[in-house]
């Protein structure tokens, strides 16, 4: 069962989420939908994100790979230079620096696509609500027995409208 409640006040959304978590709903079962980012107080609905870590990892990995690539390929191709060094730390370091940036970009974007369920959509239990300017939708995925409690929390917090949706339809 999927409950979608519409709110127009951010404090109401915060109250609703707090009471839902107090009822025992986990963060994975609650999802908010809005056309602008909703700033909830810290601790209400915290989402962990690993994008920063992936950015750093991407930077390190890409830079290492690129530098190793240049090093080994420069030495494998029998380039004649008459003594001009093939691989110098300073000049290849510039390419390494750029590849740090490129790797950070790649890590950030890939992790964003993954965490946001963009490009390759994540399976959803029901359709997301159509966004309305000024409104925030709170969607709760609850087993049939608990839907009444959830609806109660949402109405008490000040929901303007509540829709029900049977999963699988």
């Amino acid at each position: 069962m999927l409950l979608t409640a519409e709110f127009v006040e951010t404090e109401a959304v915060s109250k609703a989420v707090t009471s839902l978590t107090a009822e025992g709903f986990s963060g994975d079962e609650i999802e908010l939908f809005s056309d602008v980012p909703v700033q909830l107080p810290p601790g209400v609905l915290d989402r962990r994100s690993r994008i920063s870590l992936m950015a750093v990892l991407g930077a390190v990995v890409n830079a290492s790979l690129a530098t190793a690539f240049i090093y080994f390929t420069q030495h494998n191709y029998p380039l004649v230079t008459g003594g001009m060094p093939i691989f110098t730390g300073w000049s290849i370091g510039i390419v390494t620096g750029e590849m740090v940036g490129a790797g950070a970009v790649a890590g950030t974007i890939l992790m964003l696509l993954w965490e946001g369920g963009l490009l390759i959509p994540r399976k959803r239990s029901g359709p997301p609500p159509a966004l309305k300017p000024g409104s925030v939708f709170v969607q709760v995925s609850c087993p049939d027995g608990r839907s009444v409690r959830a609806a109660g929390c949402l109405t008490k917090a000040g929901a303007v409208d509540i829709q029900e949706h049977r999963e699988g339809r």
């Binding site: 004649v80 230079t81 008459g82 001009m84």
Partner: peptide
């Protein structure tokens, strides 16, 4: 002239 060529078109050969 040698280090700046992007395609290694100029180089110093073994006889200088």
């Amino acid at each position: 002239c040698e280090p700046v060529c992007p395609v290694h078109a100029t180089y110093q050969n073994a006889e200088g």
